[in-house]
Design a protein around this nucleic acid. Sequence first.
DNA 1: GGACGTCAAGGGGTA
DNA 2: TACCCCTTGACGTCC
Length: 303
Amino acid sequence: MRIGYPCMNTGIGCTSARTFRLKSWSEERFLSTVAENLSCLSRILAYNAAHELLFFRVTSDLVPFASHPVNILDWPGIFAEEFAGIGAVVRENGMRVSMHPDQFTLINSPDEGVRERSVAELAYHAAALDAMGLDTTAKVQVHVGGVYGDREAAMERFVERYRTLPGAVGRRLVVENDDRLYTVRDCLALHRACGVPVVFDVFHHECNSSGEDAAGALAACAATWDPLDDGPLMVDYSSQAPGARRGRHAAALDPTHFAAFLAASRPHDFDLMLEVKDKEQSALRARALALAAGDPRVRRGRP
DNA sequence: GGACGTCAAGGGGTA
DNA sequence: TACCCCTTGACGTCC
């Protein structure tokens, strides 16, 4: 089990998600922003290596406007050395990285324009991981998409379009249960239809499920990953913010909830993403809790 | 230098 | 049909 956190480190004083307004677009602005973002990503990974946080979600803002028509620059070529250096750090430390395009990426949309922009966005994510020289265990994770008034048809569109994705995208794409529309059961049906691996989101399952217990759902998701091509199951973990609207992520790790999850998830191995607002702090806490509980699954860094 | 409205992009829910 | 919500950090303007 590699433990990690998404996108940002709250303590090291830089962000790899710098961006700018479209109307401020210029080649210079773009190049300097990407250079800064890649430099910060290197710093974050160095921190993670030092703290044995071996799983990390790279921000989608790493390359701003990467799939926008305004951007015709060959950014993978221009920054080839920087990307390769980042990939080397990931491999040398036995780390895993993933990416998670945002809510506008919808491959099952009935709108052809939305679909085309979504595929272009996915191609950007895959190209970033390719530029790092990472194998296909570095995944790009999406939700199923909209329902559009006909769930069955929307799921069929997902399957059909998954099958026709460019190879560079298809080999990295994985699908995650969400908190409102598509449950683990839905995602498993997609897996049976087209082979897409299923990410298990613990909190979304608590908000939106067909009643299966979490341990069983996790086991079913784990079986959708090819250990060699896909690597271990990826799990997103968070819990309900106390007193807030149902579905809101907690601001800090709930140790009791987390301990119960760890116990229930045995003996399955997986990589664990702490989707908690305080980022690396919760990941560090989670790791310490798992080690203190004598959990043999926790992976150590390379010396 | 702080406050706050806004930002490429979609879809669902409610009134 | 119109409007609000999601989820969210960072930008950029205003004071």
